[in-house]
Simulated assay, not measured.
Amino acid sequence: MKIIRLIALAALGCSGAAQAQVSSTVALTTEYQVRGIGYSGNDPALSMSLDWAGENGLFVGAWASNTDSFASGDPYDDGANIEIDFYGGYNGQLENGLRYGVIGYYYTFPSTNYNINYPEIGVSLGYGNFNAYAYYSNDMISTSQSSQYLAADYTFNLPYQVDLSLMAGHSFGEYFRQTELTGAHEYSNWEVALKRSFGPINTKLSWVDTDLSGRYYNDGEYLRNDGRLIFTVSHTF
């Protein structure tokens, strides 16, 4: 949380020297998923963000969505039904077109049965239609276990204003190796997505999957990680 506060203060401190832009995005998706894992109980999810971005590259924001990871009565049920994330960072670009960025997150789950809030920091590099990302948390889901995530994506610009995006990532680290403690396991995920905008409305149809198998494979209602289609529609104000 200290990382987010420092970045937020820096952004607000520079707001007088550079014009700022405030925006909000509302999205409805058939399933809320992160890195191939479903977090809305196989039900639709409604999310909203509020973002501030300065011309100097600094930004801060907040994002919220409904969430449901466990059935009622499940011994692991954390009681979470909403997620609110706070973030801030900086994006820049060199004269040769190379993009770079740093971002800090603090994920919160209000009104839960126990504390599962945690921080994460990420860096990114991009050039043209290619992007690469690296994320690190020293306290994944408040377990005192560290985690890392590496990912990359590439977008093909197709005819009729359609974009085809290919993404692959890998989750690993102490949290995912402590299988008896966390119930997790190191794994890879990937996504193939078609995107198109219709005026102010953005649409995305994705095929999401992971390589989790055996006792870690889950095609059920909660925390599913099997291959499935997800459709999202959004609008930015």
Results as ranks from 00 to 15, higher is better:
L94P: 03
M48F: 04
L125P: 03
L94V: 06
N189V: 02
K2A: 15
N81P: 04
G54T: 14
W207L: 07
A53N: 15
N56D: 15
G126C: 14
V208W: 01
M167G: 01
T143R: 06
L229R: 03
A80R: 02
V192M: 07
Y187E: 02
R228C: 08
Y133C: 10
F231R: 09
Y187F: 08
S47G: 13
L28H: 07
N138F: 08
S137K: 09
S213Y: 02
D68T: 12
Y127N: 02
Y133Q: 10
K204N: 05
Y107C: 02
A80D: 08
G41I: 13
S142P: 06
P75E: 10
Y76L: 12
Y154L: 06
A132H: 00
Y133T: 14
L28Y: 13
T143M: 00
V233E: 01
H235G: 09
V162A: 04
Q21V: 14
S234D: 05
S144T: 12
A151D: 00
I141D: 01
G227H: 04
F198N: 03
Q93N: 10
Y106G: 11
A134M: 13
Y76D: 15
Q21F: 13
N189F: 00
I82F: 01
L125K: 13
T25N: 03
T67M: 08
Y127S: 08
A27W: 01
I7R: 13
I37K: 04
D77Y: 01
S47R: 00
P75D: 03
A184H: 00
Y118I: 07
Y175H: 15
S72D: 07
N225A: 00
W63H: 07
S40P: 11
S23G: 13
L58A: 14
Q21H: 15
I141L: 07
Y100A: 09
S197I: 01
D77N: 11
I116Q: 07
A18M: 14
A80T: 11
S111V: 09
N115S: 02
R99E: 15
R99M: 14
N129H: 05
F172K: 07
N218K: 07
I201P: 00
E221D: 13
F86C: 08
V26E: 00
E83Y: 06
E31K: 09
P110K: 06
Q161E: 10
Y107M: 00
A18E: 08
I84H: 05
Y105E: 02
G122F: 04
K2I: 11
N42I: 06
S137D: 12
L9G: 14
G97S: 03
E83M: 05
N202C: 01
N56K: 01
D74P: 12
A10D: 12
Y222L: 14
G173W: 12
S49K: 01
E83R: 06
G79H: 10
S171A: 09
L158S: 15
G41A: 13
Y127W: 09
S111L: 15
G89S: 10
